[in-house]
Simulated assay, not measured.
Amino acid sequence: MCGRFAITLPTDAMARLFAATPANDLPEAVRYNICPTNPVAVVTSDAGARHLRPMRWGFLPHWYKTPTAGPLLINARAETIAEKPAFRAACRARRCLIPATGFYEWTKTEAGARLPWYIHRRDGAPIAFAGVWQAWEAQDQAFVTCAIVTTRANQPMSKIHHRMPVSLPPEDWPLWLGEAGKGAARLMEPAPDETFAFHRVDPAVNSNRAAGPALIAPVEA
């Protein structure tokens, strides 16, 4: 699962990293507590031309009559994405990359308190989540929406949560974006065990109103 994440790359750096043309209406780039329904910057490819464009995090299937007509689909399970009616068309034709610097997961104490953890690449490089997207329109409302693809956790991550987002290295971006033919399904696997590191962070991030770099600073476990 991935229910919150952070991005600390400026827009121009994201555009250069993904060799993508940035839209003029992208959300603020540096944010430490991105929550479901927030706008996010997403990389898509159209005939090999990459674009960095804004989307609403929370996939809306075309049959929803309103944005709240069903569950908010922030994640798509790799194991069933090709079969689920909500995602199967997007999985074939509307795949994307969602840039991040890190993401959060939670464990619980015996007393039920939620303890947040920040997960990031060991080498400090940005993360590219595998995603799918969908344009939605009804009753004079229109959104372009996305979901993050998740898979089973690798061994280190399983200490925190049984799921993790699919993250793709640069050499796999063309295949996921549909620029390098077919076979993207093989990419929906856990990252190698050595990819990520994680540390406890302040419970302040439990609030979706919290902001600022202190949210990702380590605290004593």
Results as ranks from 00 to 15, higher is better:
residue 17 L to E: 14
residue 17 L to V: 10
residue 17 L to S: 11
residue 17 L to D: 02
residue 18 F to Q: 10
residue 18 F to A: 09
residue 20 A to E: 10
residue 23 A to Q: 03
residue 24 N to W: 05
residue 25 D to A: 13
residue 26 L to V: 08
residue 28 E to C: 07
residue 28 E to I: 09
residue 33 N to G: 04
residue 35 C to N: 14
residue 39 P to L: 12
residue 40 V to G: 06
residue 40 V to R: 06
residue 41 A to Y: 00
residue 43 V to N: 10
residue 45 S to A: 15
residue 46 D to F: 05
residue 46 D to Y: 05
residue 48 G to S: 03
residue 49 A to F: 06
residue 50 R to H: 10
residue 51 H to V: 08
residue 52 L to R: 08
residue 52 L to V: 00
residue 53 R to A: 11
residue 54 P to Q: 06
residue 54 P to I: 04
residue 54 P to K: 03
residue 58 G to T: 02
residue 59 F to I: 03
residue 60 L to D: 11
residue 62 H to S: 12
residue 64 Y to R: 07
residue 66 T to Y: 07
residue 67 P to T: 02
residue 67 P to Y: 07
residue 69 A to W: 05
residue 69 A to L: 09
residue 72 L to R: 08
residue 76 A to V: 10
residue 76 A to Y: 08
residue 77 R to C: 09
residue 78 A to R: 08
residue 78 A to E: 07
residue 79 E to H: 07
residue 80 T to V: 00
residue 85 P to W: 01
residue 86 A to C: 01
residue 88 R to Y: 02
residue 89 A to T: 11
residue 93 A to H: 15
residue 93 A to E: 14
residue 93 A to I: 03
residue 94 R to C: 08
residue 96 C to N: 04
residue 100 A to L: 00
residue 101 T to Q: 07
residue 104 Y to P: 05
residue 105 E to H: 06
residue 105 E to F: 00
residue 107 T to R: 14
residue 108 K to E: 15
residue 111 A to L: 04
residue 112 G to W: 08
residue 112 G to P: 12
residue 118 Y to K: 07
residue 119 I to A: 09
residue 120 H to A: 14
residue 122 R to K: 12
residue 124 G to M: 11
residue 125 A to D: 14
residue 126 P to H: 12
residue 126 P to G: 11
residue 128 A to T: 08
residue 129 F to M: 00
residue 130 A to F: 02
residue 132 V to P: 09
residue 132 V to F: 07
residue 134 Q to F: 10
residue 134 Q to H: 02
residue 135 A to N: 12
residue 135 A to Q: 12
residue 136 W to C: 09
residue 138 A to V: 10
residue 139 Q to D: 15
residue 145 T to L: 10
